[in-house]
Amino acid sequence: MTQAPRIPVENVLACVLAGGQSRRMGGGDKTLIDIGDKPMLAHILDRLRPQTKNIVINANGDPERFADYGLPTVADTVDGFAGPLAGILAGMTYAREHCPSVTHVVSIAGDTPFFPRDLVEKLCAAVPADHAVIAMATSHERLHPVFGLWPVALLDDLQDWLASGQSGKVLAWTDRHDSIEVPFGDDPDTGLDPFFNANRPDDLNVARSAVKKASE
């Protein structure tokens, strides 16, 4: 039996979702808060750049606050705060308009600095290139739908879903499509769950300690 072709990493655009409202952190751009010697976003990009050359940042408001990173900043294309799905849609829209060779968008949460260094590779290996299947990451038997691989072919469906006022929850939309879960182990550099996210001020202390540990 011939194995279905897999997705080349070159055909993937990474979209860092930095547009959250950060209520539990007190507001502002939590991805720009320093952990260790540099902002959380810089740690994220250090892990992401070896995985794919195609990267955009999804954030609303003044894009100049991300200018130092030298990456395109794309705003949500739907009104209101529609959560991660709006960011995924923004990444898909950018890919369709500017990157004709890109067939899939991988989403990266902007508050998760220790995500797997092989995230893109493993997600791409998990789904066929000739069928629109969504791949989502898991760890410790817990699903992390914000870390997913999204076929650009589903752009129009997602756009219609959000425009019609449907739920902005990721799983509400993914349940309508074929999907697969891809498991990941703990981060070997820090010992943390790779999808540990800095939602609260106390989480920043954990992240800073982990960065220090990894550098020792």
Score class of each variant (00 low, 15 high):
Leu17Thr: 07
Phe81Trp: 15
Thr138Tyr: 07
Ala135Met: 06
Ser164Cys: 07
Leu149Pro: 10
Ala125His: 13
Ser101Arg: 06
Thr2Val: 09
Ile57Val: 13
Ser107Tyr: 05
Ala214Asp: 03
Lys53His: 11
Leu89Ala: 02
Tyr69Trp: 10
Leu85Arg: 10
Thr31Val: 14
Lys169Ser: 12
Val74Glu: 09
Asp160His: 08
Val120Ser: 07
Ile33Thr: 15
Lys38Gly: 04
Pro128His: 00
Leu17Ser: 11
Glu181Ile: 01
Val56Glu: 05
Val170Ile: 15
Phe196Asn: 08
Ser139Lys: 04
Val56Pro: 07
Ala135Leu: 08
Gln3Leu: 08
Val16Lys: 07
Leu143Arg: 14
Asp37Glu: 14
Glu216His: 14
Val120Gln: 06
Val170Asn: 12
Ser164Ile: 02
Arg96Cys: 00
Pro188Ser: 02
Asp111Ser: 14
Ala137Gly: 09
Arg142Phe: 06
Gly36His: 04
Ala95Met: 11
Ile35Thr: 13
Ser101Tyr: 01
Phe66Val: 03
Thr138Arg: 11
Gly87Asn: 07
Gly91Lys: 08
Ala135Ser: 10
Ala172Phe: 05
Pro188Gly: 00
Val12Leu: 10
Ala14Arg: 02
Gly148Gln: 10
Gln159Asp: 05
Ala153Cys: 00
Arg96Leu: 02
Ala137Asn: 07
Ile35Leu: 13
Val133Phe: 04
Gly70Asn: 08
Leu41His: 09
Leu171Arg: 10
Ile108Pro: 09
Asp62Val: 07
Ala210Thr: 08
Arg96Asn: 02
Asp202Met: 01
Lys30Asp: 03
Arg142Ile: 05
Ala198Cys: 15
Glu121Ser: 09
Ile35Gln: 13
Gly19Glu: 11
Pro72Trp: 04
Ala59Gln: 04
Leu119Trp: 04
Gly80Leu: 12
Phe195Ser: 10
Pro8Gly: 01
Ser209Glu: 14
Ser167Trp: 01
Asn60His: 07
His104Cys: 01
Pro39Val: 09
Ala132Lys: 01
Lys169Ala: 11
Thr73Trp: 01
Thr31Leu: 09
Arg117Asp: 08
Gly61Ala: 03
Gly148Lys: 06
Ala86His: 08
Pro72Asp: 13
Val120Gly: 11
Asn58His: 12
Ala4Ser: 11
Asp193Leu: 03
Asp187Gly: 01
Asp186Met: 01
Thr2Tyr: 02
Ile108Lys: 10
Gly168Arg: 06
Leu48Ala: 04
Val106Cys: 13
Ala75Gly: 14
Leu149Gln: 06
Ser215Ile: 02
Gly148Ile: 05
Ser139Cys: 15
Asp175Val: 02
Thr77Val: 15
Ala4Leu: 06
Leu154Phe: 14
Leu13Ala: 02
Trp173Lys: 06
Phe115Val: 04
Arg65Ser: 05
Ala125Thr: 05
Ala126Trp: 05
Ile55Pro: 03
Gly80His: 12
Pro194Ser: 11
Gly28Ala: 09
Arg6His: 11
Thr190Lys: 00
Ala135Glu: 03
Asn54Ala: 12
Asp175Arg: 12
Leu119Ala: 03
Ala75Pro: 15
Cys99Gly: 02
Val211Ala: 07
Gly110Asp: 07
Asp202Ala: 13
Pro194Met: 08
Thr103Asp: 10
Tyr69Arg: 09
Asp157Tyr: 02
